[in-house]
């Protein structure tokens, strides 16, 4: 199983990567949007974890591209964020996000969701 993590917070991203690796997943840390799209096209992944910190439109567009690009194998997209606005969450779901988890993060809950989705 392969999971891509795009998290500007190295500490949190590192913890999630560490936990996923412990459970046997192959994890790739991504630092830019282009890198994410390129890697996702080259190497099929099962899930993408995005830590949302930029303007919402950029994420919606990115998720739309991930979900609509035929060269990418339609991974499950998980978004982590502090933002709790209903409109923001709805926009992300409309653009194709599978899960939206608000920070502070309950790590076991995220792992449960990933386990169920990916059957790690």
């Amino acid at each position: 199983m392969k999971v891509f993590i795009w998290c500007p917070d190295e500490l949190l991203g590192g913890l999630v990567s560490h936990r996923l690796r412990q459970q046997g997943a192959a994890v790739a840390d991504i630092s830019t949007e282009d890198e994410l799209l390129a890697k996702a096209a080259d190497d099929s992944c099962n899930a993408v974890l995005v830590h949302y910190s930029k303007p919402i439109d950029e994420y919606c567009e990115l998720i739309r591209r991930i979900k609509s690009d035929r060269s990418i194998s339609r991974p499950a997209v998980y978004v982590l964020s502090w933002v709790q606005y209903e409109s923001t969450v709805m926009s992300l779901f409309e653009s194709g996000a599978d899960e939206y988890l608000t920070l502070p993060l309950n790590l076991p809950r995220l792992m449960d969701k990933l386990n169920k989705k990916l059957a790690l």
Binding site: D9, L11, L12, L15, L103, P104, L105, N106, L107, R109
Partner: peptide, 15 residues
């Protein structure tokens, strides 16, 4: 510094 940064982002048992 590390504990405060990490604790701020986590909830539940880890925190």
């Amino acid at each position: 510094l590390l504990i405060s940064k990490l604790a701020a982002q986590l909830y539940g048992r880890e925190r």
